[in-house]
Each structure stands twice: as C-alpha cells, then as structure tokens.
Design a protein around this nucleic acid. Structure first.
Lengths: 230, 230
DNA sequence: CTAATAGTGTCTATGAGACAGTATGTG
DNA sequence: CACATACTGTCTCATAGACACTATTAG
C-alpha cells in the first residue's frame, strides 16, 4: 500500500439555472495556463482530508457566493483520461447542481471572472480540458431527470406558479408544452407541488396560485417530453 | 500543480448475473488486512497511465476469466469518504457490470477465492470497506434501468426466449409478471428483441421461439415494475 | 368592452392489466 | 389422452394529448 500510483483529484461542477427563458451554465474564465483565457467549469482540488461531496459543496458556495444554495446537488460522473490534463494525472469527480435563478450576481471570492452563459449559445468544443463532454453529460442528465423526478422544482424559487414550472420544462427541454394539460398533470400528481395559499398580483391576466415543492421525489407516471413519443 | 494532495484511485466492480432464478453478485474473499477474510467487491488500483474504463475492463476480465464479456459495463459512482480505507486516502470509481450466466466457473488469475453470491442471502453490512453501500447503489441502478432501457438482454445469452427474458425481470425485481402481457409487451416494442428464426427443443410444453437483442437501448414506453404503480 | 393568462371539462387514442382461449410440444 | 408451456385475442380502466370553454385580472 505504501507505493500506489499518486493521482490528483478535483471536483468540477455543472451548475445550471433558468433565467430569461434560457438555460444557463456557470462558467469561469481561466486566468492561467493551460487553456488560459478559455471558459471552464468551476472546480478545484479535493483536500486530502475532505469528503468528495464536501469539496463539491465548498466549490459551489465559493463560486456562487451563496451561503446555502436551495437547489439540488448530485454526483454526475468521474472523468480520468490520462491525457485530460497536461499538468499530470488528474481525475475529476463531476457534480450536477440545479439552482433557482439567483437574484445576486455571481461574485465568488475565488473566481474573478465567473459568469452565467446560455448553453445554447456556447461552443462546447471550446471549453477547457474535457469540460465540453462533462457539460454535455450534465445537460443530458438534467433533461432526463425532469421526466421521472420532481427535480424541476429545484430550478424554482420557494414559491412559484404552474406557469413558472412549465417554463422550466420548456426551457430545459427546448419544447413547447400544452399549458392546460401541464396544469392538470402537475396538480394531479400527488406530492409534486403543494398550494401555498397565496396568489400572484399585478401581472397580466388572471392571477395564478402559488405553490411550494411537495414531498415527492419520483413522478409516477413520469412527465413525458414530446420528443420521447412512441 | 507540483504540490497537490496525493490520492490512490481504485476501480471496484459490482458484477451481477442471474443464475438459478436468483440474482448473484461476484465477490472475492479478502486474504490480507484490512477486512481479512471478509467478502469484498472485486477491484484494484488504477495504473498511473491507465484510463479509468480500461482499469474496470481489466479487473472484469481478470476476475471472470473471460476474454471479452458480452454484457454491459457502465460507471456507477465514485466513493471517497476520507475514512473509507484505513490504509490511506483511497478514492474508488465503482462500475456496474451485467453479464449472462457464465458457463465457466470463476477462476481469475488474481482472485483465488472469487465466487458468485446470491444477493438476497448476503448480509451487505458485513462486506469490506463501504462495499455494502456500493452494492446497494448498484442493485438499485440495475433495477431502475430495467424499467426504461433494454439492458435486461445483457443478462441473457446471445439467443434467448421470452420466458428467459421474463425470468430476468422477475429475478432482478423479485416480482411475478404476467407471462401473456409480458410477451405482448416485449414483442410489441420495436427494436427490443428480434426473432432469431429458430426455436427451442426438448423442453416441456410448446417450443419457444428464440430471439436476439435488438438495436433499441431505451424503451418507449417503459416496462413498469408492479411496485411502481400509481 | 378586449386582451391576456389561469384553470376546468370533455373527447379520443393508446397502453397496461386481467384473463379466456388457442397452438404445439412431451410423456 | 393429460399436461405444460407458448402465444393470441379481447375487455376494461387509466392516462396523454387535443382543444372547447369558463374565470379573473389589467387597461
């Protein structure tokens, strides 16, 4: 055990949010080689006595500047091609975070040039390291999980309308959904959302009831995306 | 970059197969401390110039003694609690493998005491390291993926009957399925299975047609397990 | 009033589950 | 023949999708 091959281990984050009807990912501009000046996923080295998930949470709070994010965090996968980092053998554990649109702009202590970038207007091939592949995997994971889990509420503030939740689905899936069938489906699935009792004010049209996320994590039956028809 | 915290990285495998109507996992008996004499998942250190998936394939072929396994291999997750290995900081990338029942007994070069163990008659808490948790995650992943993918065929030999495929579902899910509805569902899902043209001989009852796995990887609509009803 | 958005009701097609009935082998 | 297993047909219920209709606000 004394002589095992020594690896560096990092935690990288695919942080997604929905703002202005576009899906955004949190990226940082690299200030040092390699890939100087290129966009990269936020992340950093795991401490020798630090748990993997703790490193991910630490990076997330550092980069977003939020004390305790209200969203969702899960492990995405581990990437360790020997040539993926020119500096040496670095294995990265990638994490997927889904956050509500943050009222505060991103101003992390660590990342000077962090910013939200719309995923549809981003050339993934130009990201540093293998981060284009990691981002693609994160997007596919997020899109798939909206189908059979209640995770779409992780993109919403504590209280939200059915239309806001529908906008999340439409933005992440890049499709249009029937507002009436969506409403029936969401309110008819036990535990998906719970009425908050209040309503919106001051908008155009009839005021909408506000909801909170419910206790359900899995959706039975799932929410089907139109592209997945039979 | 010169001074990063040094980690050891291992690849551990949850190898599942169906034999004699029971779900089995491949385990090895540890011959050295720590956890000497306890069951553990097969695995080993990743080489400093070795890709992660190559290490998993290498361990799989070493432990099963098969040149090229016909089943399925996917990354399960990465486990890296600082205290998970008393010898030092070891992060393990766990993989899930689904194999057809092997005609050859397990006789790996590396693992003297490798054996197939029925998962339902195994005390997961007595496995070495955090392998009980890894095995639990692997079982849950396998059970979930049978619902919405065609992966059940990975447990089958190249040619199989509908009854054999049904036995896979019943064994992995530990439930009974209606043979008639199952038959209609499987043969009616495009690309799930394809007729091989031949039939079984010598069994009790009417001979069954043989099938091969089809090109489909995802099932639309999914195969629903009875426990997931609404 | 109109425009806009929220929410409900209803019809139809599809698929799951229950299960009768038919086909084709062994002993 | 009886029996076992493979396979098909049919009925019923639940749900997705399409979409008419009603409700409630702003201007």
């Amino acid at each position: 055990m004394a002589d095992y091959p020594p690896f560096a281990v990092t935690a990288d984050l695919v942080v997604l949010t929905v703002r202005a009807d576009e899906l955004h990912v949190l990226l940082v501009r690299r200030g040092v080689p390699p890939y100087e000046g290129r966009w990269a996923l936020p992340g950093g080295f795991v401490g020798i006595d630090e748990d993997l998930v703790d490193a991910a949470v630490r990076e997330l709070t550092e980069e977003t500047g939020l004390p305790q994010p209200a969203g969702h965090l899960e492990q995405l996968g581990t990437y360790g091609r020997p040539s993926r980092d020119p500096r040496g053998r670095v294995v990265t554990v990638a994490w997927l975070a889904l956050l509500p649109d943050l009222p505060t702009p991103v101003a992390g202590s660590d990342a000077a040039a962090a910013d939200w970038v719309p995923v549809n207007r981003l050339d993934r091939a130009r990201l540093a390291f293998d981060h284009g592949r990691i981002l693609a995997d994160g997007l596919e994971r997020a899109r798939a999980k909206l189908e059979y889990t209640a995770l779409a509420t992780a993109f919403c503030p504590p209280e939200f309308t059915v239309a806001q939740l529908r906008a999340v689905y439409e933005t992440v899936w890049d499709t249009a959904l029937d507002p009436r069938n969506f409403h029936r489906k969401v309110t008819g699935t036990p535990g998906f959302v719970e009425p908050a009792g209040r309503s919106t004010e001051g908008g155009r049209g009839r005021p909408a009831r506000l909801f909170r996320r419910g206790p359900a994590t899995l959706l039975h039956p799932p929410m089907l995306r139109p592209s997945a028809r039979t």
